[in-house]
Simulated scan of single mutants.
Amino acid sequence: MTTLYHNPRCSKSREALHLLEEEGETIEIVKYLDTPPTHQELKQVIELLDIKPIALIRTQEADWKQNYKDKNLTDEQIIDIMVQNPKLIERPIAIKGTHAVIGRPPKKVLDIL
């Protein structure tokens, strides 16, 4: 089973979902905008991705640019910002077992199969 952190309004996220479906993958869809991850859940995702929290931020979003861009933030603060503002989380994220990828480009989600 693959867990997909998904935003149905995002074309890249929809494409990643379609690619997983084409592979016959069983998918648990997490609509993270409707049900944001907790701090601990997001921290686990970041660990699986093996990235720094800032790498999961959509830095081109106006909210990030206006409110956070030039601040000296710790990793924990960045995670808290994503929990409070889930639209800042890069998408889609696919997780299978102990492997995770950010689906940019969407074909990257196939790397975990």
Results as ranks from 00 to 15, higher is better:
residue 5 Y to D: 04
residue 112 I to D: 07
residue 88 L to T: 02
residue 32 Y to Q: 05
residue 2 T to D: 05
residue 77 Q to L: 05
residue 44 Q to W: 05
residue 73 L to G: 02
residue 55 A to P: 02
residue 27 I to G: 06
residue 48 L to M: 12
residue 41 E to H: 09
residue 74 T to K: 13
residue 22 E to P: 03
residue 48 L to G: 01
residue 50 D to E: 15
residue 41 E to V: 09
residue 23 E to I: 00
residue 48 L to V: 01
residue 68 Y to Q: 06
residue 105 P to V: 09
residue 17 L to W: 09
residue 95 I to N: 04
residue 21 E to V: 05
residue 74 T to P: 05
residue 89 I to M: 00
residue 77 Q to S: 01
residue 6 H to K: 08
residue 30 V to G: 02
residue 85 N to H: 15
residue 64 W to Y: 15
residue 36 P to Y: 12
residue 75 D to F: 10
residue 68 Y to R: 07
residue 9 R to G: 04
residue 1 M to V: 12
residue 32 Y to P: 03
residue 30 V to L: 12
residue 12 K to I: 07
residue 108 K to T: 03
residue 17 L to S: 06
residue 110 L to G: 07
residue 109 V to R: 00
residue 38 T to P: 02
residue 83 V to N: 00
residue 52 K to W: 04
residue 49 L to A: 10
residue 85 N to V: 00
residue 32 Y to H: 05
residue 31 K to T: 10
residue 42 L to Y: 07
residue 41 E to A: 13
residue 85 N to M: 02
residue 24 G to R: 04
residue 103 G to C: 08
residue 111 D to P: 02
residue 46 I to G: 02
residue 19 L to K: 12
residue 100 A to P: 02
residue 11 S to L: 11
residue 72 N to A: 13
residue 3 T to E: 14
residue 106 P to I: 06
residue 86 P to D: 04
residue 13 S to I: 06
residue 29 I to V: 15
residue 11 S to G: 08
residue 14 R to H: 10
residue 89 I to R: 00
residue 86 P to V: 06
residue 66 Q to N: 15
residue 69 K to P: 03
residue 4 L to N: 01
residue 25 E to S: 13
residue 30 V to N: 10
residue 49 L to F: 12
residue 104 R to M: 08
residue 59 T to F: 06
residue 105 P to E: 07
residue 81 I to V: 12
